[in-house]
Computed example of a mutant assay.
Amino acid sequence: MTTDKFSFPATQAEQLTQQWVEAIVVGLNLCPFAAPEVRNQSIRYAVSHASVMTDAAQDFLAELAKIQDSPEEELSTTLVAFTETAVDFESFLDLLDLCQTMLERAGLAGVFQLASFHPDYCFSGVEADDITNWTNRAPFPTIHIIREGQMSRVLVHYKNPDEIPERNMALMETMGRDGLIERFPPLAQYWPAKS
Score class of each variant (00 low, 15 high):
7 S>H: 09
7 S>M: 06
7 S>I: 00
8 F>P: 00
9 P>I: 01
10 A>D: 02
11 T>R: 10
11 T>Y: 00
11 T>M: 03
12 Q>T: 05
13 A>C: 05
13 A>P: 02
13 A>H: 01
13 A>Y: 01
15 Q>T: 13
16 L>Y: 05
16 L>M: 07
17 T>Y: 00
17 T>E: 02
19 Q>G: 02
20 W>Y: 14
20 W>Q: 02
21 V>P: 00
22 E>S: 09
22 E>V: 08
24 I>P: 03
25 V>G: 04
26 V>Q: 04
27 G>P: 08
27 G>L: 13
27 G>D: 11
28 L>R: 12
30 L>G: 05
31 C>I: 12
32 P>S: 09
32 P>D: 10
32 P>L: 10
33 F>R: 06
33 F>S: 02
34 A>L: 11
34 A>N: 05
34 A>C: 08
35 A>S: 15
36 P>F: 10
37 E>G: 00
37 E>T: 11
37 E>H: 07
38 V>P: 01
38 V>H: 03
38 V>D: 02
39 R>A: 15
40 N>V: 04
41 Q>C: 07
41 Q>W: 00
41 Q>V: 04
41 Q>R: 14
42 S>D: 10
46 A>Q: 07
46 A>P: 02
47 V>T: 12
50 A>Y: 02
51 S>F: 00
52 V>D: 13
53 M>P: 01
53 M>F: 01
54 T>Q: 13
54 T>G: 02
56 A>M: 02
57 A>V: 15
58 Q>I: 10
58 Q>D: 14
58 Q>K: 10
59 D>E: 05
60 F>T: 09
61 L>D: 14
61 L>Y: 09
63 E>Y: 07
64 L>M: 14
64 L>F: 11
64 L>G: 08
64 L>H: 11
65 A>H: 11
65 A>W: 08
65 A>T: 13
66 K>N: 14
66 K>Q: 13
67 I>R: 03
67 I>F: 06
68 Q>Y: 09
69 D>M: 05
70 S>R: 01
71 P>E: 11
71 P>D: 12
71 P>G: 03
72 E>T: 11
75 L>V: 03
77 T>V: 08
78 T>Y: 05
78 T>M: 07
79 L>C: 08
81 A>G: 10
81 A>C: 05
81 A>D: 03
82 F>K: 08
82 F>M: 06
83 T>I: 05
83 T>G: 09
84 E>S: 13
84 E>A: 14
84 E>L: 09
86 A>K: 01
88 D>Q: 11
90 E>G: 06
91 S>D: 15
92 F>R: 04
92 F>Q: 06
93 L>H: 07
94 D>R: 12
94 D>F: 07
95 L>W: 08
95 L>A: 04
96 L>G: 02
96 L>C: 06
96 L>S: 09
97 D>P: 02
98 L>P: 01
98 L>K: 07
101 T>Q: 15
103 L>V: 08
103 L>M: 09
104 E>P: 00
105 R>H: 11
105 R>P: 00
106 A>E: 15
107 G>M: 11
